[in-house]
Design a protein around this nucleic acid. Structure first.
Length: 430
RNA sequence: UCCUCGGUAGCUCAAUCGGCAGAGCGGGUGGCUGUUAACCACUAGGUUGCAGGUUCGAGUCCUGCCCGAGGAGCCA
């Protein structure tokens, strides 16, 4: 008998097939039994009918518990009464294991309990849907950059120095010296951009920030393109195109998952280019008008990001931040050197920043001056400064946070469900 | 790190003024021929986070600690 995945059963209507999976739930009503089986690709309802209540299949059925592993054989039949539209008329159930006392029942559970059982929680429908959206977003990102001639350059995770300051770095031992887990691939990207023109890296990054909010993970994934000779304007265009590409792809291919999550897709479907553009000055003015108490020169806090993204029905680009609140490598605005040529993209519906980037300093002397001003160890940055010694080039790039993007697409209240095993402040288990 | 809230059955929660620790789900047993988080009946299940204290008596009040959630700062 042919082993078939549930997502493909519609192609086997009327045929005898074998489904290998786990018991999702079961219901019984005297002489009819319903078995919900999931196999990772979907859930199908199987039925067993018999006049005799001592029918042997009933005995096996009655033994089954939630998440028991089984091989179920039977005939596929289209039936509108079944969840999923197709049903399996069960002729045989082969039990691999009866699962005893599966902790996650089909009722409500608290977040701490589910987080403690994250390894099992992944099996439930909504978590499954979120991670499908994540996987699709990853595919979309790769397709977007690969399709535009970008070269994937994997940057190191173990690094000898800080990218943007040492306070939020994870320190580890590298034989007889210290190393740090990468917070960003950007500096290395700038080197590969000089070798390949346009590049991107996409991998995990680590920040030892003691932040405990709905939008922070200790370990998160970031895609970072870097383009030689590109200006701030060029990468704003690139960022918009990337967001539109992801949006269209997920809406096209993962509609069902968004339905399972009860995500109203109308606000996402309305989004078009170009996104509204604001300078930092304009943004501050708008924020104050909408009730923010921030002062000029402050960076945006969570409330500011939220207010801003609620004013507009699409993502918003904010540019020209005060240089003081941005990283050391940010190119100053030639007309107003106190401003940095940086850009942040705020997702709509209150989700806040999903992209941060800008144009990098390409002038040798200016970069050296900034490294000193930020009290960074110059010797650790020698290789980085070399990029300004040997054919320096204006260049720009950004980082897009994968989990924040997925949280926005799925409209989740917290970022922790967008990665299979979130690393959070005070939580590294499982 | 700071602020706020919380910890009672396997899970989600209740317990009035300090006075017999309880319900639903899940488990078990039985019933039901189309169930949709099925339903109905019965049943087992407790170191009330930990350590002290006050009291005739503490889940409830006090002190300390542990754990968790929400928020702030910082950031993608």
């Amino acid at each position: 008998m042919k082993w078939v995945y549930i997502e493909d059963v519609s192609q086997h209507n009327g045929q005898e097939v074998e489904i290998r999976g786990w018991v999702y739930n079961k219901r019984s009503s005297g002489k009819v039994r319903f078995l919900l089986v999931r196999d990772g690709t979907g859930i199908i309802q199987g039925t067993v009918f018999h006049q005799d209540k001592d029918f042997p299949l009933f005995k096996i059925f009655d033994e089954l518990t939630q998440e028991s592993s089984v091989i179920v054989r039977g005939k596929v039949r289209e039936d509108h009464r079944a969840p999923g539209g197709y049903e399996l008329e069960i002729s045989d159930i082969e039990v691999i294991q009866i699962a005893r006392d599966y902790p996650i029942t089909p009722k409500e559970h608290s977040v701490p309990f589910l987080m403690e059982h994250r390894h099992l929680w992944l099996r439930s429908q909504k978590q499954h849907a979120v991670l499908q959206v994540r996987a699709e977003t990853v595919r979309a990102i790769r397709d977007f950059f690969d399709g535009r001639g970008f070269r994937l350059m994997d940057t190191p995770i173990l690094t000898p120095s800080a990218c943007e300051g040492t306070t939020t770095l994870f320190e580890t031992q590298y034989f007889d010296q210290k190393a740090y887990l990468s917070q960003s691939g950007q500096l290395y990207n700038e080197a590969t951009a000089a070798a390949f023109g346009k590049v991107y890296c996409f991998g995990p990054t680590f920040r030892a920030e003691k932040s405990k909010t709905r939008r922070h993970l200790i370990e998160f994934w970031m895609v970072e393109p870097e383009v030689a000779f590109a200006t701030l304007e060029d990468i704003i265009e690139l960022g918009q195109d990337l967001i539109m590409f992801i949006l269209e792809r997920v809406l096209e291919r993962r509609k069902k998952d968004l339905e399972i999550l009860e995500r109203d897709t109308a606000p996402l479907e309305k989004i078009t280019k170009p996104f509204p553009r604001l300078t930092y000055d304009q943004a501050v003015k708008q924020l104050v008008e909408h009730g923010s108490r921030m002062a000029y020169g402050d960076d945006f806090g969570a409330p500011e990001e939220t207010i801003l993204s609620r004013i507009y029905d699409r993502p918003v680009c904010v540019t020209h931040f005060p240089a003081k609140i941005k990283a050391f490598y940010m190119q100053p605005d030639p007309e107003r050197p106190d401003l940095a040529l940086g850009v942040d993209f705020m997702a709509s519906e209150g989700y806040g920043e999903i992209i941060g980037g800008g144009q990098r300093i390409h002038d040798l002397e200016l970069l050296e001056k900034r490294i000193k001003e930020f009290n960074l160890p110059l010797e650790a940055y020698e290789w980085y400064v070399d990029l300004r010694r040997y054919g320096t080039f204006p260049h720009s790039g950004f980082g897009l946070g994968l989990e924040r993007t997925v949280a926005w697409l799925c409209k989740l209240p917290h970022i922790r469900e967008t990665i299979p095993f979130p690393r959070l402040l005070y939580r590294i288990y499982p």
